[in-house]
């Protein structure tokens, strides 16, 4: 079956080794991680991970279930079919001469990106958006000479008022 990109969002306990458990599971079950982003969540003691996997539907079902079996994983949601907001942040360091700098600034403006650092021979652009937007900007800037790029990988939430259920703790 055709492999497509799936976006999986997880709430995990903020404990030592949890990232390792998740990564190890992907390696052991031969699942392919495209990107992984992790940070704090709205609930103390829990982090939210967004993982993009390249898989077919049966595989992604296995990914979800196997992740759910990890004791430190509190909740796994496949956001792929939901209406979701997905963003990625990239920093792009572009070679810039006095003559090309204004052209770069114009492109950056069109993309509603920001210039966050300017040096003698380069500018660093910060762009936020979905992967297509980041890719398009990257393509346009490529002609000027890309010195370095760093991307965060996708982070995502469902659209609208729905929120992950509060995870009740049995501890008082």
């Amino acid at each position: 079956m055709e492999a497509t990109k799936y976006t999986i969002s997880m709430l995990v306990e903020d404990k030592a080794g949890v990232l390792n458990r998740v990564a190890s599971l992907f390696r052991r079950r031969n699942f392919n991680i495209q990107s992984l982003a992790v940070g704090g969540s709205e609930q103390p003691g829990l982090s939210r991970m967004t993982i993009v996997v390249l898989a077919d539907p049966a595989q992604v079902e296995q990914v979800r279930k196997q992740l759910d079996k990890l004791i430190n994983v509190v909740k796994v949601t496949d956001l792929t079919d939901d209406d979701m907001v997905a963003r990625e942040l990239a920093l792009i360091k572009v070679a810039a001469t006095p003559s090309s700098r204004s052209e770069i600034i114009q492109i950056v403006d069109i993309f509603r990106a920001n210039i966050v650092d300017v040096a003698a021979g380069s500018v660093t652009v910060e762009v936020t958006g979905d992967e297509d937007k980041v890719n398009s900007l990257f393509e346009l800037l490529r002609g000027f000479g890309i010195k370095e790029i760093v991307r965060t990988g996708r982070i995502a939430l469902t659209r609208g008022g729905a929120s992950s259920k509060k995870i009740p703790s049995t501890k008082s």
Partner: peptide
């Protein structure tokens, strides 16, 4: 007397 395992 009991466990607290929100993910299990």
């Amino acid at each position: 007397d009991k466990v607290d395992l929100p993910g299990y």
